[in-house]
Simulated scan of single mutants.
Amino acid sequence: MKPTIYDVAREAGVSIATVSKILNGKGKISPSTRRRVLEAIERLGYQPNLLASALTGKRTQTLALLVPDVANPFFAEVARSVEDRGRALGFTVILCSTDNQDDRLARYLAVLKQKRVDGLIIGTGVEDLRLLAELKEEGLPFTLIARDLPSLPVTSVRVDDFVGGYLAAQHLVELGHRKMAVLTESLKVMSSRERVRGFRQALEEAGVPFPEEAVYTCAARVDDGRRKALAVLAAADPPTAIFAGNDLIAIGVLQAAKETGMAVPDDLSVVGFDNTVLATICDPPLTTVAQPIEEMGKQVVDWLVRELNGEADVKQRVILRPELIVRASTAPPRR
């Protein structure tokens, strides 16, 4: 026989009303009581009737996370962090990959609204801001992760991309590099623009020339990073260092260097961004700018749940500091 809400209340030593409040996100419940009830739910394997809850306008205890591509290790790690935190708070997380395409985003949003998810966490690029403005008008709570849209009153949790780009450039300048290039995804994406801006700022302060044409764009994939890097390295006077906008592009740069007979880091230094698992298993291990992914996932879920509970009236811009992780892909230039 399936466990009931009465069984959960008895197991946790609370009233049925308390269990109901926690399931529906209503009322003020102490953290210890909430934890005790959630642990009882997990032990008993209790599953509330979410369809009935949706039909009566109650919580479905579901959140949705929309990212560009879950195959990207960065977003895979973000998804795991969001899922872990959501589960700890009694929510199931639905994962959607949009490929940064507004039409796919629009289709997902329509389906998720039909399924009556309680809230959304958006980590995908959005060009048509009307899609998100409509969510605000409809009253569907959402937060942003690894993105920011200053024109919208919405809570966002991201890393300081400007500082990340600055740290990458500072490291390469300190090693003695003077001719550098940047490979990044579309500059329409705010995070990409900010990383390039920080990189450029550090070089300007160091008196190192950095022309506009030294910034190249490509898709955030290994194969496209390799393709673009092959063209950059084929120049008559190639750079001695490349800053890649993420670890996937950086791996593509490593592949291109190997194909052209360039040794990393002796002939070419490479810096990535994100500090995903790829950075530790590639050859050589990748110097990269680390994002605090676990903390980002935790905070974005917490802020969304606070909004669902009516506890967060003021929208927040949470900006976490990145950290440069130095490994074997960077060294002083040989020439």
Results as ranks from 00 to 15, higher is better:
residue 102 D to A: 13
residue 328 A to C: 13
residue 131 L to F: 08
residue 238 P to R: 03
residue 169 A to S: 10
residue 298 K to N: 09
residue 258 K to C: 08
residue 221 R to H: 11
residue 28 K to E: 12
residue 136 K to A: 13
residue 155 T to C: 02
residue 39 E to G: 10
residue 231 A to C: 09
residue 253 V to I: 14
residue 98 T to H: 09
residue 2 K to R: 13
residue 233 L to I: 11
residue 300 V to C: 10
residue 94 I to W: 06
residue 32 S to F: 04
residue 100 N to S: 12
residue 277 V to S: 07
residue 125 G to Y: 15
residue 91 F to H: 09
residue 275 N to S: 12
residue 175 L to K: 02
residue 158 R to I: 00
residue 317 R to M: 07
residue 171 H to T: 02
residue 128 D to W: 10
residue 18 T to Q: 10
residue 335 R to A: 12
residue 99 D to L: 14
residue 184 T to M: 06
residue 297 G to R: 02
residue 73 P to V: 14
residue 109 L to R: 01
residue 170 Q to L: 10
residue 301 V to W: 03
residue 11 E to C: 06
residue 250 A to L: 05
residue 277 V to G: 04
residue 225 G to P: 03
residue 147 R to A: 05
residue 281 I to M: 15
residue 296 M to H: 00
residue 61 Q to W: 05
residue 252 G to I: 08
residue 328 A to K: 15
residue 306 R to W: 01
residue 297 G to Y: 01
residue 67 V to T: 14
residue 136 K to L: 14
residue 273 F to G: 04
residue 199 F to P: 00
residue 294 E to F: 04
residue 210 F to T: 03
residue 216 Y to D: 00
residue 171 H to I: 05
residue 226 R to P: 01
residue 265 P to N: 08
residue 149 L to N: 08
residue 325 I to P: 05
residue 249 I to P: 00
residue 27 G to Y: 03
residue 331 A to L: 05
residue 206 A to V: 02
residue 60 T to I: 07
residue 112 L to T: 08
residue 22 I to D: 00
residue 53 S to Y: 06
residue 35 R to N: 11
residue 12 A to W: 07
residue 259 E to H: 02
residue 214 A to Y: 01
residue 198 G to L: 00
residue 150 P to F: 02
residue 161 D to A: 07
residue 334 R to F: 11
residue 326 V to E: 12
residue 258 K to Q: 15
residue 217 T to D: 06
residue 315 K to Q: 13
residue 327 R to P: 15
residue 251 I to T: 15
residue 84 D to H: 11
residue 67 V to Q: 04
residue 89 L to Y: 04
residue 212 E to W: 02
residue 274 D to Y: 00
residue 185 E to Q: 13
residue 262 M to A: 12
residue 71 A to D: 13
residue 34 R to C: 08
residue 268 L to S: 05
residue 325 I to Y: 03
residue 286 L to A: 01
residue 78 V to M: 07
residue 156 S to Q: 08
residue 162 F to H: 03
residue 134 E to P: 06
residue 212 E to L: 02
residue 15 S to K: 10
residue 306 R to M: 11
residue 225 G to W: 00
residue 215 V to H: 04
residue 49 N to R: 08
residue 20 S to M: 07
residue 162 F to G: 04
residue 95 L to K: 11
residue 278 L to W: 15
residue 94 I to F: 10
residue 76 A to F: 12
residue 77 E to Y: 05
residue 224 D to R: 06
residue 94 I to T: 10
residue 207 G to H: 01
residue 27 G to L: 07
residue 122 I to H: 05
residue 4 T to C: 01
residue 147 R to F: 02
residue 283 D to F: 11
residue 46 Y to T: 06
residue 282 C to S: 14
residue 332 P to I: 11
residue 260 T to D: 04
residue 83 E to R: 00
residue 241 A to Q: 06
residue 224 D to K: 02
residue 41 I to G: 01
residue 134 E to F: 07
residue 112 L to P: 00
residue 52 A to L: 07
residue 5 I to G: 08
residue 191 S to M: 09
residue 319 I to E: 13
residue 217 T to E: 15
residue 260 T to E: 11
residue 155 T to S: 14
residue 257 A to I: 09
residue 305 V to D: 02
residue 17 A to W: 03
residue 65 L to T: 09
residue 215 V to G: 03
residue 216 Y to F: 09
residue 96 C to M: 15
residue 147 R to L: 06
residue 34 R to N: 08
residue 315 K to A: 12
residue 297 G to A: 02
residue 190 M to D: 10
residue 8 V to H: 09
